[in-house]
Every structure is written in structure tokens, then in C-alpha cells.
């Protein structure tokens, strides 16, 4: 009985193996497969697609404007090459001088030079009367 059940179960399951798609199934299957394979073959690698997307987002005109804007900001606001902090304007200079931790005062020197603007230098006034290290320099 058991063997008979096994055999009949096998026969039942093999009925499933007799199922066949009808009509135009395989033509349609082949057509879709060819289209998908072609798409796979012409598809660019992931890194190339990523670069393409980034190039579309960051278009040359936008990039140029952005880079140009950054350059302008840097050119007009970049502090001159002096050590220490920089401030602009006499008022700020005096405020810095007053806020400094120098007990014996500060020495303020103005230089109305013609090489790129007017400059003020604030340096520490030492007890000996010498000028100490430069505290602040500014141009205005």
C-alpha cells in the first residue's frame, strides 16, 4: 500500500510536469529577453551613471557661478597677510586696543601708505619704551 501511494504520488506530481504554456508564450518570452539583454549590454557601469547624474545636477553654468562667487568672496574679504587678528576701521581698532590685556598701554601707529590702503598698527608698549609684539593690524 505504501509503495502504491508513493508511486501514485509520483504520477500525480509528474502531471504538473506536463503543463505547457500555450499560444505565443515563447515568442513573447524570447522577445522580452532579447530586449532586456540589449538593455543590459548598452547600460553604462554604475559609476558612469552616477557621474552623469551629478553632471546633470551641477550644470556648468551653475558650477561656474558658484566657483566665481566663491572666488569673489575670497578676494574681497580675505584678510591681508599680517599676524594676529585684523579689524577694519579706526573705531574697531581703538576698541581692540582698549580690550587688550596690556597694562602699560599700547602704541598706535598709523601709516597712510599708498601701497594698498591705510594701515594702523597696534603694538604693546613695553615699560622700557620699546614696542612689543604687534597686537593687531588693520587696514581701512
Amino acid at each position: 500500500m505504501g509503495n502504491g501511494d508513493e508511486e501514485n504520488l509520483g504520477r500525480l506530481l509528474r502531471l504538473k510536469g506536463c503543463e505547457r504554456p500555450g499560444g505565443d508564450f515563447w515568442n513573447s518570452f524570447d522577445g522580452k529577453f532579447q530586449a532586456r539583454r540589449l538593455a543590459l549590454l548598452v547600460r553604462r557601469p554604475f559609476w558612469m551613471r552616477l557621474i552623469g547624474k551629478l553632471r546633470r545636477i551641477f550644470r556648468p553654468s551653475v558650477a561656474t557661478l558658484g566657483i566665481g562667487g566663491v572666488v569673489c568672496v575670497l578676494l574681497f574679504s580675505w584678510p591681508k597677510n599680517f599676524p594676529g587678528n585684523t579689524v577694519t576701521g579706526t573705531r574697531e581698532l581703538l576698541m581692540v586696543a582698549l580690550a587688550s590685556n596690556v597694562d602699560d598701554g599700547v602704541f598706535i601707529e598709523e601709516d597712510f601708505g599708498d601701497a594698498g590702503g591705510d594701515f594702523c598698527y597696534v603694538s604693546e608698549l613695553l615699560p622700557s619704551g620699546d614696542h612689543g609684539p604687534l597686537l593687531v593690524a588693520c587696514n581701512f
Partner: peptide, 8 residues
């Protein structure tokens, strides 16, 4: 769903 049977 399933396809039609073509029996051997």
C-alpha cells in the same frame, strides 16, 4: 495559475 496540460 497554471498552464494547460499536454499529457504523455
Amino acid at each position: 495559475n497554471f498552464d494547460n496540460l499536454e499529457l504523455d
